[in-house]
């Protein structure tokens, strides 16, 4: 157990160091220490650190952590190892709401635009859950995944349609097609960090109820759990977490899919332990993917949303293939 905890922590610290150190401008420990001693706006290295790298790190920590937890909650709620906020259309819902807001309210207030991600994510999460058979019975992995893919495709094509209505659309379009951590400084990071912490806390709190629900509705109710309340709380947690991540970094594919199996392997089958490990693993994976994306085409960068898609595609296939027939309904 201690070894696994150490491993999680080591990878996490490595990811943080890599994020601060890698880039067009190499960064030394002297610069980092200098910045800690007192910020000198005339030192270009310190400016890079304060205005590019640290916001990037914060964006990665929040978005990666939030998506990792959201993925774990989603997989527990749907009992579906293929569940992921991206695959199930939740981040497409958030993206749609933000783009719609940007179009009609103008790009004036970053805070308002970020806040729009939450109702968008909530509506998409609820719609997919209902379409996937969440109320009528036990939603099976296949039905839910199909509902999510359909919702995702619909919302993303709406996003594209909206963006094409704008003249100056290219930058917006690029952001909403594949997420990036580069725009952290423009986002209300502190508020979004707070919202994701609330989402994380809620997820940790209801974890035992989700475990009870995983025994099936009948037995769960027999054990004194109200399935509807638990599902509602879980959807709220997913919404808070995915909304924060999307507001900061745009859509990031597959992260919520990659993190939960890793967290289960490292933290064990107790959902609360898994949820404690998930944000650290999520942030590590996202920061590694981001650093990799900045290294392979340097000085240009491959967006982290593209990197996670490249990494996550094979993981999706691997999980789908390892599902036994009995689990596929």
């Amino acid at each position: 157990m201690a070894v696994k905890l150490g491993l999680i922590l080591l990878l996490f610290l490595l990811a943080v160091a890599l994020t601060l150190g890698v880039g067009v401008q190499g960064l030394s420990w002297q610069a980092v220490r200098g910045a800690m001693g007192g910020y000198d706006p005339n030192d270009p290295l310190q400016v890079v650190l304060a205005e590019i790298r640290l916001p990037r790190l914060a964006a990665g920590l929040i978005a990666g952590g939030a998506l990792g937890v959201a993925g774990s909650v989603m997989q527990a709620l749907t009992r579906n190892p293929l569940a992921d906020p991206g695959l199930l259309g939740v981040d497409a819902g958030a993206a749609f709401a933000v783009v719609l807001g940007a179009l009609y309210l103008g790009q004036s207030d970053a805070g308002i635009l970020a806040a729009l991600a939450f109702p968008g994510a909530a509506l998409a999460a609820m719609a997919v859950f209902l379409l996937g058979g969440g109320l009528s019975g036990e939603p099976g992995p296949i039905r839910l995944t199909l509902a999510g893919l359909a919702m995702s495709a619909l919302l993303l094509s709406l996003v594209n349609g909206l963006i094409l209505l704008r003249g100056d659309a290219l930058e917006v379009f690029r952001f909403w097609i594949a997420g990036t951590l580069a725009l952290g400084l423009q986002k209300p990071l502190l508020a979004l960090a707070g919202v994701s912490l609330v989402g994380w806390w809620l997820a940790l709190w209801i974890a035992p109820l989700l475990e009870t629900l995983a025994l099936g509705r009948g037995l769960a109710r027999g054990l004194g759990t109200s399935p509807l309340k638990v599902q509602g709380a879980a959807l709220l947690a997913i919404t808070l977490l995915t909304g924060s991540a999307v507001a900061i970094a745009g859509p990031i594919a597959f992260l919520g899919l990659i993190v939960p199996p890793l967290a289960r392997r490292l933290a064990g089958r107790n959902l609360r332990h898994e949820l404690l490990a998930a944000p650290f693993i999520g942030a590590s994976v996202l920061l590694f993917a981001d650093a990799l994306g900045r290294m392979i085409l340097a000085p240009a960068e491959v967006r982290v949303g593209v990197m996670t898609a490249i990494l996550g595609g094979p993981v999706f296939v691997w999980i789908a293939r390892s599902l036994r027939l009995g689990e596929v309904r």
Partner: peptide, 30 residues
């Protein structure tokens, strides 16, 4: 109610990979 009456439905769902001891622990939920 859950402290006074328990029900075992016909086909409860098996959480993948669960150990017998962990399954039984879930009975303490109420």
């Amino acid at each position: 109610l859950a402290r006074r009456l328990a029900i075992l439905p016909q086909a409860p769902l098996v959480p993948p990979g669960i150990l017998v001891a962990d399954l039984v622990r879930r009975g303490r939920a109420p």
